[in-house]
Write a protein that binds this DNA or RNA. Structure first.
Length: 299
DNA sequence: GTCCAGGTCGCGC
DNA sequence: GCGCGACATGGA
């Protein structure tokens, strides 16, 4: 077994643990948080097919925030594989995202008292947008325990294994999900009616009819992107707003039962709240609305 | 059995 | 554009 350590630096304020545990993604396979080592682990399949294990932890450099990435693999890594791992880690931890404007607003926005510790505000992502979208589809119309279970089975049934550890599996590729077919997803992963959506997403990618890389790198305004993402089967306004968040765009609120309950309790004395009222509530935050909600402390 | 979960689709109006 | 029932699955 081979092991190597990379180091990634962050230019601005960054707190590794706050980032790793910023929202539910850390509980979804193949992510794993190890409390003892304060490590974020993930089994990852590289484009070339090799399956590696990443263990990420805070760096101990006093002057520059950094992340240590230990990579375990069955074979030595090539240069392109190192680049892929580094880029994946930067995406997961949003090391290239500039939140300084949001930090500034948190300091001095009248009437608001967001609970954002220094170096927080970066919501964990998967190494690829595809995985983020599948996760998101698995959060729709289901309890959180159901989301965990569905993703767990998806990985267990269709993910590639780490060498000599059959149960350490990476997230399935679009190819694996596309060729498995909707019937397999429905019968083996418990995705239920979402099976069609996940299968269609994977298939359109495999067939080249959907270019997620183009969406990832798009310079288009967020409202245009929102409408494009919204075209994906199974992606409504909640999911589209969530996916925009995962693209680093925070101007759409992901309105779901959780947000409704939270805002109703904190701002409307427990009364039912219309979506328009929720929009109006966080509208002052402009392009930072999603984060404003996420770090808005309970009453 | 019934209801609902970090919703969305397709229909009819 | 808006309101409505159906949708798979598992837990309360």
């Amino acid at each position: 077994m081979f092991s190597i350590v990379f180091q990634e630096h962050v230019s601005s304020t960054f707190d590794f643990e706050l980032t790793a545990r910023s929202h539910g993604w850390v509980a979804l396979r193949p992510f794993q948080w190890t409390e003892a080592g304060r490590e974020l682990c993930r089994i990852q399949r590289l484009r070339g097919g090799q399956v590696v294990r990443l263990k990420m932890r805070a760096g101990n450099d006093e002057h520059v925030a950094c992340v240590h990435i230990t990579v375990e693999s069955g074979a030595p890594l090539g240069a392109s594989e190192e680049v892929e791992i580094r880029q994946g880690a930067r995406r997961m931890l949003r090391l290239d995202e500039d939140l300084s404007e949001f930090y500034g607003l948190c300091q001095d926005f009248d009437g608001w008292n967001l609970k954002l510790a220094p170096g927080g505000g970066r919501l964990l992502r998967c190494p690829t947008l595809f995985e983020d979208i599948v996760y998101t589809l698995c959060t729709t119309n289901i309890s959180w325990s159901g989301t965990i279970r569905m993703v767990d089975r998806l990985v267990a049934k269709l993910g590639d294994s780490f060498p000599e550890h059959a149960t350490w599996r990476a997230f399935p590729t679009p190819q694996a999900i596309a060729s498995a077919g909707p019937g397999f997803l429905k019968n083996e992963t418990g995705l239920g009616y979402r099976s069609e959506y996940v299968w269609e997403l994977a298939s359109t990618i495999v067939e080249g009819r959907l270019d997620l890389q183009a969406i990832e790198n798009s310079e288009k305004p967020s409202d245009v992107l929102f409408r494009e993402i919204r075209q994906l089967k199974g992606v409504g306004s909640y999911a589209a707003a969530t996916i925009l968040m995962l693209l680093g765009r925070y101007e759409y609120l992901a309105i779901d039962s959780e947000l409704r309950a939270f805002a109703s309790k904190k701002y409307f004395q427990g009364e039912p709240v219309a979506d328009a009222q929720l929009q109006a509530l966080y509208a002052p935050w402009g392009k930072w609305q999603y984060l404003a909600y996420w770090f808005d402390p309970p009453a």
